[in-house]
Design a protein around this nucleic acid. Sequence first.
RNA 1: GCGCCUAUAGCUCAGGGGAUAGAGCACCGGCCUCCGGAGCCGGGAGCGGGGGUUCGAAUCCCUCUAGGCGCACCA
Length: 521
Amino acid sequence: MPNHPEHGDFASSQAMLMAKACRQPPAAIARAIASHLHPEGTYIASVEVAGAGFLNFRLKKDWLWEALQAVLLEGPAYGRSAGGQKKRVLLEFVSANPVGPMTVVQARAGAIGDSLANIMQAAGYAVEREYYINDAGAQVNAFARSVEARFRELAGESVPFPEDGYQGEYVVDLAAQFMAREGNTLRALEPEERIRYFETAAIAEMVRRQKDELERYRVRFDHWVSERHLRSSGALEETMEILRSRQRLYENEGATWLQTTDLGDDKDRVVVKSDGTYTYFLPDIAYHRDKFNRGFDILIDILGPDHHGYVGRLKAAMAALGFQPERLEIIIHGLVRLFRGGELVRHSKRHGDIVTLDELVEEVGVDAARFFFVMRAPDQPLDFDLTLAASHSQDNPVYYVQYAHARICSILRQAEAEGTPWDASRPVDFRVLTDPHELALLRRLADLPDEVVAAANARTPHMLARYVQDVAALFHLFYDNCRVLTPEEPVRRGRLALSVATRTVIANVLALLGVEAPERM
RNA sequence: GCGCCUAUAGCUCAGGGGAUAGAGCACCGGCCUCCGGAGCCGGGAGCGGGGGUUCGAAUCCCUCUAGGCGCACCA
């Protein structure tokens, strides 16, 4: 794709690439290629040799007009393609520990993961979304003891709060909920029994809350996989057996180690501690093995920046099991810093003053939150300006795009009020669309299927966030230069068609990003 | 100390090895008898330093500098 209009609609650098092999100057090769091309009967209007040996192709306007026809015909399906060849992809994201509220870190992972799943689906991949529930291990026990302590406080007892307990107000709230619901039954239990009960019931309640919170954020999962079930299924022992039979395990200082160093990891890793219990690493290996065994071609994990040390060992573990490690893709997303009124918002988990997903949605709305999180490349750090995201102003890119959509809807309402509503069944004479602003917009609309594929293959939604801003800008430009509801009939109809197509493209992209396309604002 | 990531306009960021490196914000100046002015038009400045690979490097490799983040028989 050339950067400048005078370089045509498509360009090829093939001549330069061939120059060495052919022992000919690139320009001469380009001229030779050009003279052997027979563009008659194709969309190609002209071929020219330019610069150091570029072949620039100019397309007939028929091509653009047919692209417009395709947008109108395909509607909500426009932008979809089959490039992914129905490869089965399992996308795991968020997977927050069920011992606390969702934070802005999970908010970013959620926005990226859900959008990426949408985009890869549109590009022809068979994507399933999965949430891994860490409902086993030491932190679950610590959480249950925290709830239990709060429960006894509510019952009027004076008890010491666990040293490694969870301080947050939500724990008190949770204890109160159990007190109200089944206080009498629970009070009759021994403390240890209550703790065991909370390990299941309180965690289940936390997962339910997380599910609801994500639902409000328009993020849904196909599968919720429990670590506890994985453990009780015998998958860990099975994984150990396979690693042992593949001779990847050895004993040292009373612990069992997995040999990963020769597979790209910095050091070997303990999988069974000297006290006989498993490290957190083994369930993760077993879990990823299970994912592969379910028949997926590609596994994608989206993890926070604090986990990037984890990539090497997990890939090494997959290699140790005999899976191709490149089929496990790990996206590490960048840090999120919150700003309000230009000031950095301090939020630390330790002090319990975190900003939760719900609070974020409350403050800026789902649309702005989702859009802001996918505006940047996933691996880049992100400064999230809460004041900007919450503002209904031209500075806010979400509203800029949504405004373009609403404006088109308004034009269509106006057309209807004038007694000439848009009627998709009547033919359009596309030849009236010749203004540079019309053609520039149309050219961009024609890019959508390629943009979706590019974003899917690069595993990043931010390309589409930028694309849709571009489309909105081109629409506003068109709008200011070409009056849509002009009395001249064929022109009016052509411009209405272009407007409808633009609305379709904006709506389709916003849908992929999980953002609403309002008809009025 | 080891490893990973980052460095592009005053600020926040795009840039899928190609031609003259792009947006938004901020700043200055214009545009409403007209379909939504939440809009549009015009105006300046930039690839951290140094090597290399290539016909061609912001992009790939090495190195230096400056930031960020990780380096548990925690999860």
